[in-house]
Simulated scan of single mutants.
Amino acid sequence: MSDPRITSGDPLAGYTTPPPPGAGGVATADPLSAPASAGWELSGWWRRVGAYLIDAVVIVIIAGVFFGIFAAFAGAGFLVGDTTGFIASVLALMGFLLCVVVAALLYAPLMMARTNGKTLGRMMTGIRVVRANGKPISFGYAVVREVLVKWLLIGAIAGSFTFGLAVLIDYLWPLWDEENRALHDMVVDSRTILD
C-alpha cells in the first residue's frame, strides 16, 4: 500500500503544523493598500475622553519636568518672592505654559509614531488611532493629525472664529457620527478603534 501523502501532489500534505508565512503562494493583494476596516471595532466616546484626560495629565507632568530642568539651569531666584515677586511669578507662569505647549505639540506625534497610533492614555484605555487605508501611523501623519489639524486648524483658526465652539464640536462629533469620528478624523481619514 502506498503512502497517500506522497502521491497526492501537495508538498505540504501530512504536516500538522501551520505552514510558514508565504508557503501558501503569492498574495494577490497588498495588505497595506487595502482598507482594513472590516475587522475594526470602533472605540466609544468615553474611552476617547478617558485617553484624552490621561494624556493631559502626562503632558502636564512632562512640562513640569522640563520647567524644573529649566529653572535649575536658569536659577530658581525668579521663584522667590521679593520686590519683583509679581513679575517673577508671571514670567514663571508663562515659562511653564510654554513648556506645556511644547510638550503637548511633541508628545502625541512622537508616541503615535513609535507605537503605531497609541499614546499612554490610549494604551491605558485600550484604544488606538488607525489610518483608514490601513497604512501605519508615521511621524509626519501624526504631526498632520495632531498638530496641524487638531491644534492649528480646529483649535487655533476655527476656534478663534467661533469663540472655542469649533473645539467643543470636534470633541463631541463622535457621539453622533456613524463611525465615531471627530472632525479631525474626517479631515485626515483616521479612525479610533479598540486595540
Rank of each mutant, 00 (worst) to 15 (best):
V167A: 15
L105R: 00
V65D: 05
G117S: 05
A76V: 07
K118L: 15
D189G: 15
S89Y: 03
L172A: 14
L91C: 06
A166E: 08
A88H: 15
S190H: 02
I127S: 09
V90N: 10
M123K: 06
M186A: 12
G85N: 05
S138K: 10
D55S: 12
S138L: 04
V188Q: 10
W176L: 13
N180P: 03
S138R: 14
T115M: 05
K118Q: 06
T125F: 11
R131A: 07
A103D: 04
A113Y: 12
W151K: 15
A76G: 10
S190E: 01
L91W: 15
A103I: 00
A72K: 03
A72C: 02
A92L: 11
L175M: 10
G164A: 07
V143M: 06
V100I: 11
V149N: 00
Y141T: 11
F66D: 10
H184W: 08
V60Y: 15
K150F: 03
A132D: 08
G81T: 13
A182Y: 13
D177Q: 11
L183P: 01
W176N: 14
M94K: 08
N133G: 11
I62K: 09
I154D: 13
H184E: 13
A103C: 10
D82Y: 07
L106F: 06
L91D: 09
G77Y: 00
G64V: 04
W151F: 07
R191Q: 04
I59N: 05
G85V: 14
Y171R: 12
A182E: 00
V102F: 09
N180W: 15
G95I: 06
A76I: 13
L93Y: 05
G95V: 03
G155H: 10
R128Y: 10
V167W: 01
L175S: 01
G159C: 08
A72G: 02
V187W: 02
I157N: 05
G140M: 08
I137M: 13
F67T: 00
Y141F: 10
M124E: 06
L183F: 01
K150I: 07
A104G: 10
G81L: 08
A158D: 04
P136V: 03
R191M: 03
Y107W: 03
V90K: 02
G121F: 14
R114D: 11
Y141R: 14
W173R: 15
A113N: 10
N116H: 08
M186D: 02
V80Q: 12
A158S: 10
L175T: 01
V167E: 10
N180M: 07
F96S: 11
L79R: 13
T119W: 02
A92S: 15
I69L: 08
L168C: 13
M94N: 08
V80H: 06
